Computed example of a mutant assay.
Amino acid sequence: MNPAHPHTHQHVRHDNDDSDGLAELLDLDAEVLAEHTASLLAWLPLDTGPRQVVDLGCGTGAGTFALLDRFPDAYVTAVDASAAHLRRLRAKACARGLEERVRTVQADLDDTAWPDLGTPDLVWASASLHHLAHPGRALAAVRELLAPGGLFAVVELAGFPRFLPEDAPGDRPGLEERCHAATDRLQAEHTPHRGADWGPMLTAAGFTVEGRRTVAVDIEGTRSEAVGRYALAGLRRIRGAAATALGAEDLTALDRLLDTTGPHSILRRDDLAVRTERMVWAARRT
C-alpha cells in the first residue's frame, strides 16, 4: 500500500509484517466508516442477495464483514497480497463465528494469472484498484470471473480523510493540507490511477455501468472516540511519507500532534472530524 495514501480497508500491495501500523489503521477505518460502508452496500442495484462474493484487496476485512452482515446467505472469498492481513481477517472471522462463511486467498491482483476465485455473483473492490499497475487487465479478469449478470462494485475515496480544522494547529495553520500536498507530489508516479473515473475503464472492459454515487463523509469526532485514534494512526503514516518534504517548522508542529504524552496531542483535541468523499460505481457484466 502507498504509505502516503493509507486510506483504506482493502489493498493489494504491502509487506507481510505490520511494523508501520497499517493493520491498525485499516481496522480503525472500518470502525469509523462502518455506517457509510453499509449505506453503499444497501445502494447497490441487486434484485436478490448474492450467494458468492469476492472481496478484492480485502485488507483486514472491513468490506468482508460488511458484506457478510448485509448478505446473511453469502459466502465471501477475501483476496489480498498480505498474508499478515489475511491472518488477522481469519482470526476476526473465527472470533465472530463466521469462519465457515469466509475463505481467504493470498494473491497479487497485478499478476497475469489469478488463483481460482469461483464464479461470484458480486465482486467488491474498495480502495484497492488505484494501487494496480495494470487496472485494465484486472478489470478484464473480474469480468471473466463474474457469473453472467453479476455485479462489480468499485469504491474509492477522493483522498485520505482530513481530520483537523483548516486553521489548525494554532501555530501552523493549514499543516494538514501541506502534509497531503507533500505526499501527493512524492507518490503521484506510484499511484497514477488514484482519483480516476472508473466509469470509462469499466465500459472499456466490457461492463455496463448501472450507477454511480458520491457520498460525502463528515463524521464529528465527538460521535466516536475511534476518530482520534484514526487521526493519530493516519497522520503517523503521513509523517513517514512526508518527512523529507516538510519544512522544519511543519515537521515540529506535526510531531507535537503525534506526541500522545504532550499537551498538544491530537488525542486531546475536541475539534476533530473525518472529512472526505467516497465514490462507488456499480457495473454489470454484459
Rank of each mutant, 00 (worst) to 15 (best):
A204S: 09
L235H: 14
E144M: 03
A125M: 02
G247M: 06
L26V: 09
G21P: 02
H14V: 08
W43V: 01
R284D: 03
A204K: 07
V54F: 04
S82I: 11
G159Q: 13
T222Q: 14
D250Y: 10
L145E: 00
P45Q: 11
H36G: 01
H7E: 06
R237S: 12
D167V: 00
A205Y: 01
C94F: 13
A242C: 13
D18I: 05
R275E: 10
L26K: 11
D80Y: 01
G149T: 02
A107M: 03
D197N: 13
A83L: 11
A182T: 13
G174N: 05
E166H: 10
A273T: 07
E177P: 04
E100T: 10
P50I: 00
A231Q: 08
E144V: 03
A273P: 02
P200F: 05
A127F: 04
R269P: 02
Q52L: 11
E177V: 09
A216K: 08
L89E: 04
D218R: 12
P192I: 08
L33D: 02
E176C: 07
H130C: 08
A231W: 02
L117Y: 05
A95E: 14
G136K: 09
P148K: 00
H36K: 07
V123I: 10
L109Q: 03
R278N: 00
H5S: 14
D111I: 05
R162Q: 12
P173K: 02
V217T: 06
A243E: 15
P72I: 02
D255E: 14
E177N: 07
A113M: 12
A38E: 15
L33R: 01
H131D: 14
D259V: 02
H85W: 12
D108N: 15
D171H: 12
A38H: 09
A113N: 07
V76N: 12
D108V: 03
R178N: 01
T77S: 13
G61Q: 12
L272H: 10
A81N: 14
R185V: 05
V142D: 00
T60W: 12
E189S: 15
E249G: 10
P72C: 00
T104I: 10
V227A: 11
E156H: 03
G262L: 05
L67Y: 08
V12W: 01
P165S: 10
L146C: 00
D73G: 15
L67E: 08
D218N: 15
A231V: 08
R103E: 15
R90N: 09
A140P: 01
A140F: 10
A62Q: 04
L22V: 14
L68F: 11
A66M: 04
D15C: 06
D197R: 06
W281H: 09
A205H: 03
P72E: 09
V54P: 07
V215G: 00
A93W: 07
P135W: 09
V79F: 01
S82E: 09
G21T: 00
A147P: 05
E100L: 11
R194A: 15
L33V: 05
E177F: 03
D121P: 00
D55L: 04
A78Y: 02
L235Q: 10
L26C: 15
G57D: 07
D255H: 04
A93E: 08
V215L: 14
R87T: 13
L186E: 12
H7N: 13
L68N: 05
H7Q: 10
L86T: 01
A133C: 04
R185W: 09
G97W: 10
P165Y: 07
A181N: 07
D29T: 15
S128M: 06
A226P: 00
L22Y: 14
R13Y: 10
E100W: 12
